[in-house]
Amino acid sequence: MKINDIEARMHSKFPESPLNRDDTGGTGVQWSIAVPISGIRDAATEFDAAGFFLESITALDFEDTFELVYHFNCYEPGSRASVRMLCGHDEVPPSICDIFRGAVWLEREVHDFFGIKFSGNADMRPLLLPEDADYHPLRKTFGKVGAYHKREVIYG
C-alpha cells in the first residue's frame, strides 16, 4: 500500500508534526499531517514521487489564521491523505505548481477566494472572479458576517 509507505516517509520527514490517523474512514481521509509552511514543498515532492495526484487545495479562514488543506490521493483504494498547514493572514506560502502542474489553477482559486498569494506561482490572475476583482469572497469578513471562530473552537 502506497499510503502506508508515504505515511512512514512523512513521519520521518516531519517527526514533530502531529499526524492524525482515521482508520474507520469516518472523515473520508486516511490520515492527515500538519506541516509548517516551509514543509509543504517537501511533502508535495514526496507525494509526487510516490505517484499521488493532487485532489484539491482549499483553505479555511479562522479568526487567528488561515489553514490550507491539501488533499492527495492515489489510484489505490482508500489512500487519501491530507496535508494541513497553518498560514497567517499575511503570510505567503510557497507554491507547489512546479511539482503538480494542476496546482496552478487550484492555487489561483484559493487566491481568488481567500487572497492568499503563493510565491512561485507566476499566474495569479483571478480565475473564477472577474479580472478586476479585488475582494476575496470566502473570507469570513466578506459580505454577511456569520460565525467567525478561532481555530481551536473547531479543532480543539
Binding site: T58, L60, V69, H71, G146, A147, H149, V153, I154
Partner: peptide, 16 residues
Amino acid sequence: LTAYYLVSDGSPGPYR
C-alpha cells in the same frame, strides 16, 4: 471524483 469538504462548528450550517 467529486468531493464535499464540510467543516462543522456545531451550528446548523457548515463553517466551510
